[in-house]
Amino acid sequence: MRIVAFFVLFFGLIGCRESVQPTLVDKPVEVRRPQSFPPFEFPADNRPTALRIQLGRQLFYDTRLSSSNAIHCGSCHVLSAAFTDGRATSPGIAGIAGRRNAPTLANVAWMKRFMMEGGVPTLETQALAPLHDSLEMGTNMMRAVHRLNEDGDLKALAKAAYGRDSIDPFVVTRALACFQRTFVSGDSRYDRFLLGQKDQINEHELRGRDLFFSERTQCGSCHGGVFFTDMEYHNIGLYAVYSDEGKARATHLPGDVGKFKTPTLRNIQLTSPYMHDGSIASLEEVIAFYNRGGEPHINRDVRVRALQLSKQECDDLLAFLMTLTDWNFVQQKDLLPLER
């Protein structure tokens, strides 16, 4: 009788153990913030948790978000290039190049509005743009979530992360934004210098720094602050006639033609080519462009004018810009695709 009872109990326990599904346990996560960065408040409906970030990471590198099943967010936003891709404009699903240069995603948590004309208000809603753009991922959100919902493991992860029974547009937009808000880059040599490590910057670079923030160049008046951007929109006289109208595309105002959001200069060494259309290949050429003063345009910012910088001064500026690279950021393994 005891033997029978033992076997009943033993097999009962085995049976119970096999029927138990692994439980995904979520927990809040504190996203690292460099000392010099201002505090950032995550949206109330998208506070960071371990599973939300994990889900966003999986989706960021998931080709099911493109109609061809061939590209993902990380195809044009490559970590080693500070989440750009080294191309003037990026080919989408059909191999046809888009119209604009892929922007860096470093520190997007702190950015105010999205897209180069600033039409999109939040990082969550920004996810809809590349998904739907026929020159990028060329799908639509409902088709994408239909495909994602066929993946039971992903559904379980989404359920644990956001408490929803299926993957829907809310989950996809929130998870992608949550992951991207972990793209924090604030450990350049210049950052260390500002924290007191004076040996991080040499004389040559310091001269460039002084020139950058001088009245003479006024580089820092647009590319200022901790993120090296004023987050505003300016016409820099890149063209006399703009085929891409920039901010005017959203506002329809003639005074906004040719205005584009000021890009951050953090990691600028890694994010070539430059300008909204990737039309300038190197940083040396960008500095030469500003030194010439740009093309005539009625909306050109008055601060863009011939600077009369010497060769040495141009080199100094370049040297300073090189100090803004955060090499630790671009080697962060937890920003790469999950290893399967």
């Binding site: 039409g119 999109v120 208000p121 743009a129 998904l131 753009d133």
Partner: peptide, 9 residues
């Protein structure tokens, strides 16, 4: 049914 802009608000 797709009646929203994606590049803009």
């Amino acid at each position: 049914q797709g009646m929203f802009w994606v590049w803009n608000t």
